[in-house]
Every structure is written in structure tokens, then in C-alpha cells.
Computed example of a mutant assay.
Amino acid sequence: MRRTFAPWADPQAKPLIRVDNVTKRFGDAVAVDHLTLDIFEGEFFCLLGPSGCGKTTLMRMLAGFEYPTEGVITLAGQSLEGVPPYRRPVNMMFQSYALFPHMSVEKNIAFGLKQDGLPKPEIADRVGEMLRLVQLEKLAKRYPSQLSGGQRQRVALARALAKRPKVLLLDEPLGALDKKLREETQFELMDIQHELGMTFVVVTHDQEEAMTMADRIAVMDHGRIVQVADPGEIYEQPKTRFIAEFVGDVNILEGHVMGQENGLWRVKTASAETPLTIDDPDEVLHSGQAVAIAVRPEKMTIQREKPGPEAVNVLTGEVWDIGYLGDWTVYRIKLATGEILRVSRANVSRFVESPIDWDEQVYVTFEPGAAVILAE
């Protein structure tokens, strides 16, 4: 289902949320700068970017805690201008969870429903449904102080979902969890979102979190959206150097375009003895243009033996550092120019005969299609 979900690719599909040329200023500071964005019903959408890029401000405008200085935000075709938070079909799960310490789990979940004046039987049914959804039935009578961080996170999620909003906003929802629990919860959130068919909008600065959960990611920088795409495209085809460096690890090689040969770009760089050969048909370049070549560490190979004369994209260096990560080993290779490359090798075998060691001279290669040319 997730693989076939792509309403943004349908020109007839209407977005659930439309952010139209929105700007938000705080005095002289511009937090969100003429931003336009569409989010579709049933989408797990992620706003990704460094601290201060404007992603949380945009989410607060969706929630109604802030209002645009300029521009319009619409939800299901209705303008949200002047609509207070409690009148919007939107709920927000805060990073701190904001649970009531004097209320039990079930009373925390029921709080918003009671405020809305729902009948007691319906409240009981809805609370029971949410407890089952987040697998906390046995902890219904406990108080927040008696729960682990992961359990408190589930209570906050259940409370936010209980009112059945059209859109659930999640502000750094997994930031307080340890790494292992955070990874497990990512998949649980995906399952819950898919089961409910609800629209989730999550704010995070964690690239791995965004790549795992989102149908699409909007990468933000200085109040603007730099690229909106699915995780695979963001990682494999970044539009700018900022995105390539922010999302995942990457090696950047500076050079100048020499021209094309057999449909492949030839790029002269000080990092290699011979020009690099790059297969990137999407780029329109001219001879002499300064460019950056982006190559992910796992797309490079490392070996002791000098490659044959038919090999392309060969760089020579010395092993500077080695990091063993269990499933991967990361090599930091120092080139003659002083540049440091990161090369990742999967540990597919428990034992490796004569492994590459510190201070060895090695050769690093990559295929023409493994790199992306960044003109910006």
C-alpha cells in the first residue's frame, strides 16, 4: 500500500492542506519565507531541517498557535485564517508529551473527549479503542510517573488520536526516547498511521527518522523549502549541496566540467589523477563550469590492488581512520590533496582474511552512475 500511495503524482488530486505563499515574521526576523506546500489526505509527511529553519513555526501555524504574516493556509478547502486551535480539525502531539501527572493513563486519553462533551459510553469506547491501538490496556490505571518514556509517548499519541482529527501534528515525537526504542517506535507510528488512514505531519531534525517514516519529505533551510520528494529521491537525487550534506553521509569532490563523452560528463578534479566520469543526464552543464560531485560512502569501493586501466573514477589515498560499527566498517581515507573520504563496507562475513588496516595505501573507486553532479 505505501509503495503505491502517491496522490501528489495525480494532477487531479486535491491536497488536504495547502500552504500558499506563507511568510511568518517575528519583528525583523523571518522564520518562514514565502513558502508554498501541498500535503495530501492519508500522507505521512515530514518537515526536515536543522534547528532554526522554520519547520516548527510552520507546524505551529498549522495548529493555530501562530498566524501567518502573509499568505493563506487552507485545510480541506477552508481557510484557517482567524480559526483558533480548538476549532481546527487538527491535533498536536508535543515533544514534551504534556501529560497531566495527576491523571491516570485512561483519564489522560479521555480528557479532550470530556472537554468536547461526548457521552460517557462513547468516551469509554474511544478510550478502550486507543488503549488497544497503542497496546497499553494493562496500564490504564497507572499514572505518568509510573511509566517509561516509551509508554508516556504512547499515552500522548493515544490522547492526540482519540479526538479523531483530520490531521495529527507531531513535533519531534521520538526525541526523548533512546536509540533502540526510537527505531522500534518509528515502525509502530507507521503502522498506526496506515491503520487509521489519518494524515500525519511530523517535524524532526533526525534524517534517519524522516527517511524511515515519511511518504514524502520537505527539506527546509532558512525558512524556505529546498526540495520536496520521497525519501529515495531525497537521498539519491539531492537538488543542492545543502541537501546532499544534510541527509546522510556524503563525499564532496570539487571540480570543473570538461565536457561530455559518450553521453557521460567528464569532470576534472584535483582529487584524482584522471578526470572523473559521471552519468547524470538530468544536469545541464557547460564546459569550464565549477561543480561539486556528491558520492555516498556506501557507493564507493576500497581495495589494496591498483585497478586495471579500464577502471574509471579511481582515487588514491591512505587509511587514516577505521570505525567498526558491527554491520558496517567505515574507512576514512586521506587523499594527497588532504581531503578525507568516507568509504563504507558492509560486513557480510564474520571473518575477513587480511583486513585493510591503518596507514595502508588504498584505491577507492565508484561507478559513473553512483555520483550526482551538484551545480549549486
Rank of each mutant, 00 (worst) to 15 (best):
P355Y: 10
W320L: 15
I293N: 03
S96W: 10
C53L: 06
T74W: 05
Q151P: 02
V22D: 00
K24I: 13
V30C: 12
V134M: 01
F94T: 11
I234N: 01
G223F: 06
D230R: 13
I243M: 08
P68A: 09
N91Q: 11
L118H: 10
R342H: 15
A6I: 04
V362T: 07
G149N: 10
A160L: 05
G308K: 06
R266V: 07
I225L: 09
F246H: 05
A176H: 10
R332N: 11
A6S: 13
K306Q: 13
T274H: 14
L37R: 04
M59E: 06
V364G: 03
A214W: 03
V343P: 00
P84H: 08
H256E: 14
F94D: 07
L174V: 10
L118E: 07
G259Y: 08
G149Q: 08
M130T: 02
P275M: 01
A176R: 11
A110H: 02
V314F: 09
L177M: 12
K55A: 04
R154F: 08
E273T: 10
N313E: 12
T56V: 10
T204I: 06
N251W: 03
F187V: 12
L47G: 02
A140I: 05
R87A: 15
G259F: 09
R154G: 03
E283G: 07
P368C: 08
R18K: 13
T301N: 11
Q303D: 07
S51I: 14
A272R: 00
V167T: 02
G52T: 09
E236Y: 03
S104G: 11
T337C: 11
R241V: 09
G263Y: 04
E106S: 12
Y331H: 12
A29E: 13
S271A: 15
D20A: 14
A290W: 09
L315V: 08
L99M: 09
M1K: 14
G54Q: 05
R224D: 06
R266M: 15
F94W: 11
Q12A: 14
D116Q: 15
E41V: 02
F45E: 01
T36A: 15
G248Q: 06
K55Q: 01
Y67C: 09
P238M: 05
A290T: 13
L16H: 02
V364S: 06
H222K: 15
M190Y: 00
A292S: 14
Q153C: 05
V83K: 09
D215I: 01
R345D: 03
S145M: 13
M92L: 14
G369Y: 12
R342L: 15
M213W: 00
F351I: 15
G77Q: 04
E236C: 03
G317E: 00
D206C: 04
N262Q: 12
C53G: 04
L136M: 14
P368W: 06
G54S: 09
A156S: 11
R60V: 08
P355I: 09
I373P: 03
N313P: 14
L113T: 00
I243Y: 05
R332L: 11
W265G: 04
A162L: 03
D33Q: 07
G288C: 12
K268V: 14
R88M: 10
L170N: 02
E209M: 04
V343I: 15
N91E: 04
V348K: 08
V314H: 09
E236A: 10
R60Y: 13
H205V: 08
A13H: 09
R152D: 08
G248W: 06
L264K: 10
T212F: 04
V267F: 03
K120P: 05
T74Q: 07
H222I: 04
E339L: 12
A156W: 00
V291D: 03
